[in-house]
């Protein structure tokens, strides 16, 4: 058994298992951790498919940044207690499982009809990647896909701004009077008072 076959058969079941784990566990943090492992296994698949750059990006972006964001939000909202058990929508669970199995069956049929279960990718992928995969990708990305690339950069900026706008807590803006009234509060809390107020600690003792 060639090495890549071994790797595939080790990580593919792991991938499926972690995905199932993500669905079934009650605790949201545990689900997120399962998903991280799953993303790692997908990264390994990319490695097997001769896409080392995406392997790295998958780990950095998905397993790193995105899942950290997930965990952060889960803990911020304090919703890691897990869902209440039971299903309120009638027949939702049964139908969902049937549909999930059906779609796998259908896709398997489609794959079999399309390329068959034994087709192997031709060798010599290195020829497509002159100077290594990242540099070849860069060549395609910044030549053929330059405009979409720039568009996605705009998309990212818009998304960042949108997130700020959405997450901004609309605090009641303080009136000038309120600001003046509460100006000394912080100082008082530390046993100090606003300078100039009678009986302040800052005044020289007589």
């Amino acid at each position: 058994m060639p090495l890549d076959n071994v790797v595939f058969w080790v990580f593919a079941p792991l991938s499926v298992a972690t995905a199932i784990g993500m669905i079934v566990v009650r605790n949201a943090v545990h689900a997120a951790l399962f998903l991280v492992v799953n993303f790692f296994t997908i990264a390994v698949m990319y490695l097997l498919l001769d896409a080392p750059f995406l392997f790295a990006v998958q780990i950095v972006v998905y397993a790193g940044a995105i899942m950290v964001l997930f965990l952060f939000v889960i803990m911020l909202l304090g919703v890691d207690r897990g869902d209440a058990p039971g299903e309120r929508l009638l027949g939702q669970r049964t139908t969902a499982v049937i549909l999930a199995v059906a779609i796998v069956a259908e896709l398997a049929t489609a794959i079999r009809a399309g390329i068959g279960f034994t087709t192997r990718a031709p060798g010599g992928f290195d020829a497509v990647n002159p100077g290594g995969n990242p540099s070849a990708l860069a060549d395609v990305l910044f030549r053929d896909y330059f405009f979409p690339f720039e568009v996605t950069s705009i998309l990212l900026i818009v998304a960042a701004v949108a997130a700020m706008v959405l997450a901004l807590r609309r605090s009641k803006s303080l009136s000038q009077r309120e600001i003046e009234t509460h100006a000394g509060d912080d100082l008082e809390a530390y046993g100090l008072a606003a300078p100039g107020a009678p009986g302040t600690v800052g005044e020289p003792s007589r």
């Binding site: 929508l89 939702q92 139908t95 969902a96 549909l99 059906a102 779609i103 259908e106 896709l107 049929t109 489609a110 009809a113």
Partner: peptide, 25 residues
């Protein structure tokens, strides 16, 4: 108004479309 119901309908539609494509081929 239940989002998951909508998602289920959505999914059922997708499965049906795939089935139609498979039968046609």
């Amino acid at each position: 108004g239940k989002v998951r119901r909508y998602a289920l309908s959505f999914m059922a539609g997708g499965v049906a479309l795939l089935l139609y494509a498979a039968v046609k081929i």
